[in-house]
Design a protein around this nucleic acid. Structure first.
Lengths: 225, 225
DNA sequence: CGGTATCCCCGTCGATACTG
DNA sequence: CAGTATCGACGGGGATACCG
């Protein structure tokens, strides 16, 4: 646990927990719905497993997370106290999206982007699954250049190796461009229009893609003029 | 500035700034209205001046604070971006007051309590200033035992030495008891009724005291059942 | 899959003193 | 009042390897 501020103020008491590195991002993952250790890791790829383990213990000790073990199955679930941290995550995210527009190159991560997009696919918007969306980042070299998001009727997977299934649509762009679309800094439409992003495939499907990856909560936050 | 999380997520980008120790408490002070270096210090007594200086520089660099110098007069004022952090401070405080009820002895601080109370006096509720409220913490020894809050028509001061002015009301309690009242963990009325807190003076004034120190925003947050 | 164990470095923070 | 200077300790956390 972080050092005490020695203040009775509720903000101080809360921050003793929340100002530790990674803690609120872990809560964000839990709020998003991840419950398993390795799913949490995927959302926090730069966090070491030992630190993740430590933070989970701290959150359990603080009454924010409940560790539910059933045989081999381990799940970390937010308690009522933890669930209310959603308001904190949202207010922080809203502020961040409004006032920190600039992303450094080191903030861009294809794997993380694909992981986040795939878990937010709107299955109800996909008329005729399965669909396979192939992403190509034309400014990335190596294994992270090409990705496939496979949308089944009731689940979605992401692959970094060719699943060898018929591709419905191919999306080609710079990594930063798709990231900005996903964050809501711009729209699919504007990105396509400007040439930053290309969608290839049958017209109906091309038009449907944006609906499969709908703006998440923070993406629709109004930006300052 | 804190280390990068290497994530495009707005929550991560925001927390790179906000998860550093003391930062959000400093923002809280600015949101509360303090603008001068030494006033900020009073609200953050355990923060070293060099660290306060460093954090202010960081906030200025981040576009959250504007340093306004006019001759000898230096003021730190929130920018529009900084002002919007009020939502973050409030959501964190709301969560804290609801889910972290337990205060350690080390969280209690008479000087900080008096500083916070004196700056939140509701002058409009004081019918016939000046009034002098004398506080006695019967479980504290030494210089921090006795305090005076002097309410003038248009300003309020706090003293730890006898101002030698006629005392209107004397409030006697344990340090924890008054802290809990001020935080809204209990009410003036309940504290008096239980005997934890004693108010002495003319009846009219005794009855008026709670209105002079009205519950601040967080104090009125509903607690979980 | 679901974690522990270890190890060491580097940076933060705290304390204190001091200046214009 | 409004800060800067210095300095040392400590421990957080990053990396990596490993276990059940």
């Amino acid at each position: 646990m972080g050092a005490s501020y020695r203040q009775f103020c509720p903000v101080a008491k809360a921050m003793e927990l929340l100002d530790e590195r990674w803690t609120l991002l872990l809560v964000r993952e839990l709020v998003t719905g991840s419950q398993r250790f390795n799913d949490l890791r995927r959302g926090l790829p730069r966090m070491s497993p030992s630190l993740l383990s430590k933070r989970l213990h701290q959150l359990v000790a603080a009454g924010i997370v409940d560790k539910q073990v059933e045989g081999n199955d381990v799940r970390y679930v937010l308690t009522p106290a933890g669930a209310e941290l959603r308001q904190v995550v949202e207010s922080v995210g809203t502020w961040g999206v409004r006032w920190i527009g600039t992303l450094g190159d080191e903030d861009l991560d294809p794997k993380l982007l694909m992981w986040d997009m795939h878990r937010n696919v709107d299955l109800s918007a996909v008329d005729d699954p399965p669909e396979v969306v192939h992403f190509v980042f034309d400014d990335v070299r190596g294994r992270s250049r090409r990705w496939w998001i496979v949308i089944e009727p009731d689940e979605t997977d992401v692959c970094d190796i060719d699943p060898e299934r018929p591709v419905s649509v191919t999306v080609t762009s710079g990594l930063r461009d798709l990231t900005r679309v996903w964050r809501g800094d711009t729209t699919w439409e504007r990105a396509v229009r400007s040439g930053a992003l290309r969608i290839e495939g049958p017209t109906t499907l091309r038009r449907a893609v944006p609906a499969w990856f709908p703006p998440t909560g923070l993406a629709s936050v109004v930006r300052p003029a």
